[in-house]
Design a protein around this nucleic acid. Sequence first.
RNA 1: GUCCCCAUCGUCUAGUGGUCAGGACUCAGGAUUUUCGAUCCUGCAACAGGGGUUCGACUCCCCUUGGGGACGCCA
Length: 472
Amino acid sequence: MSEIRVRFAPSPTGFLHIGGARTALFNWLYARHRGGKFFLRIEDTDPSRSTDEAIEAILDGMHWLGLDWDQWEGGSDDVVRQTERFDLYKSKAAELLERGKAYRCYCTAAQLAERRQAALKEKRVPRYDGRCRERSGPAPDLPFAIRFKARTEGKIVVNDLVKGDVVFDRSTMDDLIITRSDGSPTYNLCVVVDDADMAITHVIRGDDHLNNTPRQIQLYEAFDYPVPKFAHVPMILGADKARLSKRHGATAVQQYREEGYLPEAMVNYLVRLGWSHRDQELFTLNELIEKFAVEEVGTSAAIFNPEKLNWINARYIKTGTPDFLIPPLLPHLAKLGIKKESIDFEKLNPVILALRERSRNIVEMAESTACYFLDEIPYDEKTKKFLNAENLPILKAVRDVLAETPFEHDPLKEALQGICEKMGKKLAKIAQPVRAAVTGKTVSPGIFDVLEILGKEKALKRIDAQIALLKS
RNA sequence: GUCCCCAUCGUCUAGUGGUCAGGACUCAGGAUUUUCGAUCCUGCAACAGGGGUUCGACUCCCCUUGGGGACGCCA
């Protein structure tokens, strides 16, 4: 059994989106599961749409998700870029031309567009009419595209690992353009040449490519290349069942990082879209590598459901150790003005432990973390409900007692409960104003934990400040 | 319009001829509680429709309907 070789081949026209990320993940998992190779190839043959920023964004997204790739033996860089391989594609196109399996087409783009429009208008199938196919006489001195001469009789069957056998009639396929009139090669030529050259054994991609597959198989046949195995995975749709797009919310994986999602949660969610393993919902990466199989991917499209993602994300946060949560938390703390150098990590650990079970995402966690490290804290509008004249006596009483109390959980608990008894109030009545005064928020971990972590100095200072404010 | 794919709770899915059609998210109710949350119970909720095949269809076949994709000198 020879080595499994797969690739992820995005075109750099934008960020790495959810669908692409899942395709990359499936490829990656398949390769890692089978002990094979996973390559990254950038399909940038259309210069008008490709940008370097987009390439960076894709690499960044892959890194974030933890999807590493192998360097292809034939490449100088760990990323294969098609623009660097134009000579190969052109020579392959020339080869087909020479062998009579392709021909020059002098129709202009404008003419073709016009004919297509007309066909659509008359409800005819918009196909190339093949008018340049059999042209004879001297070649005109005009720019030309090269078209592949497709066979017109018989059928092509795609043996797909997820869709099963899919049959296409050759007569429904027209002669595709393999090089443009400016000499640049097109997608269908490039994929085939590259996948063959890189000895790709399994092509795992979105099922929007299923229709391209028979065309590509014709090219494999023409070049006498071995045909790889195909696996077309279903697409991801929005809540309205339309193709996932910006109007459904965030589609860039980076945006999820910004919004406080953990890459592990993202991976876990994406893999469960279309694939399952009994009743298991949560998987470590190693479990996925062990258990995932493309052949088990479902056949129908899945709808992207942010709620489930939220749940998975919260699960990862809740069970995450401080060591696990700190790296993704730091950039969000930095945004709130808390620099890494100024953080007392001894103190950060208990904060995370107290916060992780009530944080749905890392942004929330960072916002709740801030008050333990900032000197000046912002006060939520909602705290006004508790920081008022009516509660002034409570704050005063608490302040006096706390001044004499060691800042540890149990003594703090005793102290505050003592105040409750003395004033004849429930703990909630006492805890809320204190919480508001020391955290600037109306929600936080348990008040005894908050005070202990905060320390006596900061806590008293903040309570004093509020007392002074209320008096004036 | 032509070709291709798809069809189990609202959503993600299990199911491969005989199941009370299972799990998860969401939602509702309850328990717990020091705020928020978390947690634990409980509950609501599905085989798109119609024909076959079969002793028996969610499961196999066909049709209809619905959804998606492709039909580019985009990838």
